[in-house]
Design a protein around this nucleic acid. Structure first.
Lengths: 232, 232
DNA sequence: TGCAAAATAGAACGACCGTTCGTTTTATTC
DNA sequence: GAATAAAACGAACGGTCGTTCTATTTTGCA
């Protein structure tokens, strides 16, 4: 509490409401990751948070708004876990590697928990509306970041001048999607390794000779496998 | 109508029922491809086929059985369109190429219609039961066929001896998934081309020098782009 | 043609859904 | 601590869902 001037409304900050709203979104996100955004029901969220249906509902005004809040929350966490930490790696290939490594870490965890960007794509791929818009926007922001990292790696001279940036981004995306599909749905063992090998294969084709090698920093492991030759 | 011979029961065939059942499954498949297997409702199918809800229901006994019938029907069509025609290509790389080409053709069409194998994976990846089992079985059969084609291409000497068959299958699967995601959900143009280029990239890394080139037969187009060098 | 069986229709059920409304509880501010 | 606003509750609504049951129509075969 401030002592003087404008007694007690710092930034007109909301109080208890925002706090429980965060709790609700947290529970809703966990639920939506498992059973999908479409399967998300207000009653189930209410049960999880030990609130009444109408109590949950009042915070959003509609189920759709709850879904959008979940997408935004997922977006924020994705940025926090995957994107921002990778920005500490130096521009170019190291940063691209860090982005993929963080992405892989998250996708690996989502083998158990599920991924809203992937399930949401199937659910909303021909269902227009604000939820779909929010999903597309979030995914596009991340894809643009990946593309930017690739462009930078090229202009840093780490990737061949004739490398097609969008092609690389497309193939990398495919690795993540295949990992999620084969590990989570088909439960095929070894999928994480294949996604990592796939990334190395792409780099082996596109990297220049004087590109910085992997595991330069940030990793605790000593240089174990320095592969420049691809695993076919 | 035929004029003579075997009036009206060819092979003790079931009568009108099987016929309308096929109509129902056909409509249900179209609907499920668009909105997903979980979104499939008996009422919607009834409306599509201009039947009553209970009329539709009686053919299956449960919604779950309808879903399973849809999966089986999809499997049959997939075999018919993608797998069987590819068997006419000679063993090894040509057949693998044909399988991918047919798969691409179908996936390209599914940019508009949707794909049950992909949406179903998201819907049933942690929902055990007979529908999930049917999906996993169908997808696994196809993946096994792809893997077999790769193994054969290797033993025919078309692929390098050190090629990892499962790795190739994984990366190819990723291309298909990325195509579906980016074209159908994100509506990014050029995705079909990138999937094809990705396949060429994989082959450029794994194929031997004496591997048969692409477009040997079956294609009407004259040899336009004979790329052995990958598009990076 | 007649008759049994199969196929379809129609109404109704219980369950769950998102949403609304009025009330009660809790938090905030004077 | 009283006044006021925010938050949460509980019951109820209209709607859709899968499913059941019974009645009616259509089909296939003697």
């Amino acid at each position: 509490m401030s002592v003087n001037a404008v007694p007690a409304k710092p930034v007109r900050a909301a109080q208890k409401g925002q706090q429980t709203k965060a709790v609700i979104v947290d529970a809703a996100l966990a639920l939506a990751a498992q059973i999908g955004l479409e399967g998300l029901s207000i009653g189930a969220v209410a049960e999880l948070t030990k609130m009444s249906k109408s109590g949950v509902f009042a915070h959003f005004g509609s189920r759709e708004e709850l879904q959008i809040s979940v997408v935004r929350e997922y977006h924020a966490r994705f940025e926090q876990e995957v994107f921002f930490p990778a920005l500490e790696a130096p521009r170019g290939l190291p940063r691209l590697r860090a982005m993929f490594a963080n992405w892989m870490k998250r996708t690996s965890a989502e083998i158990d928990s599920g991924c809203i960007y992937i399930s949401g794509a199937s659910e909303f791929d021909d269902r227009p509306g604000p939820v779909r818009d929010a999903l597309v926007e979030s995914v596009s922001i991340w894809q643009a970041a990946v593309l930017r990292a690739i462009v930078q790696a090229k202009s840093e001279g780490h990737l061949r001048a004739d490398a097609d940036e969008r092609q690389l981004a497309f193939e990398i995306h495919g690795l993540i999607l295949a990992l999620h599909y084969e590990a989570r749905f088909l439960q095929v063992p070894g999928s994480i390794g294949r996604a990592n090998v796939g990334f190395d294969n792409i780099l082996a084709r596109s990297a220049t000779l004087d590109a910085p090698p992997a595991e330069a920093a940030a990793s605790a492991k000593p240089a174990a496998s320095r592969r420049l030759k691809p695993v076919r």
